[in-house]
Amino acid sequence: MTAAQPPETDLDALFAQWAAAPVAGASVDVAAILALPQERAAPARVGAWRPALMAASLALVVAVGGWIGFSDRFASPPTQIAVVSPSAEAAVGEAEAFALVFTPTAAEEDLI
């Protein structure tokens, strides 16, 4: 047996009281709003972006031209990698193949 809840704790009753409550400051003075200076859209400036576009394109041409001009000057020489042919690897024993692969070169020894 459940007792009926009092209306103060019933959620629907609380919402009904809230909706029926008077709202303070609900009136809007339209005449006061219209008397204020209104913001107007700025006139369109056709072609205002052209100087900026020309400056950006000139900067791009200078940057790409410099990059192309200096790319050959600072390029590193091609690196050659020692390659053991499969026929030479098949002729040597397993231990010699291991030594060919894992023995450091003179340049690697100097680095170590």
Rank of each mutant, 00 (worst) to 15 (best):
V46A: 14
P77R: 12
P22V: 08
A19I: 01
Q17M: 01
L14S: 13
A35Y: 06
W67A: 14
V23Q: 12
V83N: 11
E39V: 11
W18T: 05
E108P: 00
F74Y: 13
V92I: 13
A32W: 03
A75H: 02
D10E: 11
I68Q: 04
P77S: 15
E8M: 05
T9M: 08
P43A: 15
P86Q: 13
D12R: 06
S57P: 00
A59T: 05
A19F: 01
P104F: 03
V64S: 12
A21R: 06
G25T: 02
A21H: 05
S71N: 14
E94S: 12
L11D: 14
A59Y: 00
V23L: 11
R40E: 12
A99E: 14
L60F: 06
G47Q: 08
V46M: 06
R45K: 10
D72M: 01
A107W: 03
D12G: 14
V23R: 09
M54R: 07
L60R: 02
A106E: 14
P51Y: 06
P86H: 10
R50A: 14
T105A: 06
A35T: 08
L53D: 05
A75T: 04
S71Y: 11
A31T: 06
F70S: 10
I33C: 03
A35K: 11
E8K: 00
G66V: 08
E96Q: 13
V83S: 14
W49R: 05
D110V: 00
M54K: 03
A88D: 15
I33G: 05
S85W: 02
V84M: 09
L34Y: 04
T9F: 06
G47L: 09
F98T: 07
F102I: 01
L60A: 15
A55V: 06
L53R: 06
A24F: 01
L53V: 07
A95W: 02
I68Y: 02
E8P: 00
A95Q: 13
A52C: 00
A63Q: 02
P43L: 07
V61F: 12
A106V: 04
G66F: 08
L14A: 15
R40I: 02
F15W: 04
I112T: 11
A32D: 14
A99G: 08
S85I: 01
A48Y: 04
A95L: 12
F98N: 05
S57T: 07
S87G: 12
I33Q: 09
G93M: 05
F15P: 00
I112C: 03
G25S: 06
S87M: 10
I68R: 02
T105F: 01
A63W: 01
P37A: 15
A107D: 13
Q5I: 09
W49G: 06
E39I: 08
